[in-house]
Amino acid sequence: MEDNNLVEIKNLKKYYEISRGLFKSKLIVKAVDDISFSIRTGETFALVGESGCGKSTTGKTLLRLTDATAGEVKYKGENILSLPYDKVRSLRSELQMVFQDPYASLNPKMTIKQILMEPLRVHNKFTPEERMQKIVDILEIVGLSKAHLNRYPSEFSGGQRQRIGIARAVILNPDFIVADEPVSALDVSVQSQVINLLLRLQKEFGLTYLFISHDLSVVEHMTDRVAVMYLGKIVETAATEELFADPKHPYTQALISAVPVSHPSEERERIVLTGDVPNPANPPSGCSFHTRCPFAMDICKTIEPKLKQVGNDHIASCHLYTEHKEEKEDAIIHS
């Protein structure tokens, strides 16, 4: 199993400091707070959660687009976070990213040709003629044509722009792509086209995806394993089918039950959470979900639950599945 991991994330932390003026202490926001997971070669691993849970920050941090506070990200056995920056830059041909907003992620002053040429030029791949051929090929693969080469992004619709963004990410034949909400800014009728494209490219190029999304129906459709994040922490990880069939953590249960029905006659037993997501700068003590949890117990307010095996390849952090006494003693010893 271990050898099968393409990317391994260990104890990754990303804290932001917010200064509140000269004489006040700095506020620390734990956007990503000590998370670990691994992504296997060829799979699609999903990070799900609501806005502000740290899923996008995780994606950016593990590609070193922002600096991590602590932890390591091992890619093919090498820790990306401790490599010198020049090494990381050349490694980027293997690690790519697809962004959420197809309007913001393409330079408005560059033509499609220039946008797609850039990765090839930067990593010095192929001769000039081969580059042109490569660009034309990739455009056809993502469903555009050479007629578009000299156009600017503003001449395209959102879906077409996202195809360009995807073409830019796959043109270097990467092994690993972080897709940060790649379809959530698109029209419904175009979303399915882009999902199909991502699925097809994965097969064709043998890609591994980290798929960041808040849309559970898309996650259920196209991913292999899922990690659920809440306030900077992973609260549950499982194989996709298992997670949707048998969610263990109360937050995951609520999240899945909150998805709108797919047919008006469908009756769904819904766990409607009370209250809002707490401020990440001032998270609750103990289990960070206890303020909204319908099953909260006394222990949840004081002691943070650890991730525990709750099934085959299925872990969750919730006191419902731990022996409370042991945990308590454990905590006392450690404190």
Binding site: L199, E220, H221
Partner: peptide, 21 residues
């Protein structure tokens, strides 16, 4: 084209083309 109306991991039904301007 809704993912819930398609088999998991299968190619989704999709409407071709773009919304016209």
């Amino acid at each position: 084209s809704l993912p819930t109306n398609n088999d998991r991991k299968s190619k989704l039904y999709s409407i071709k083309g773009q919304v016209p301007r």
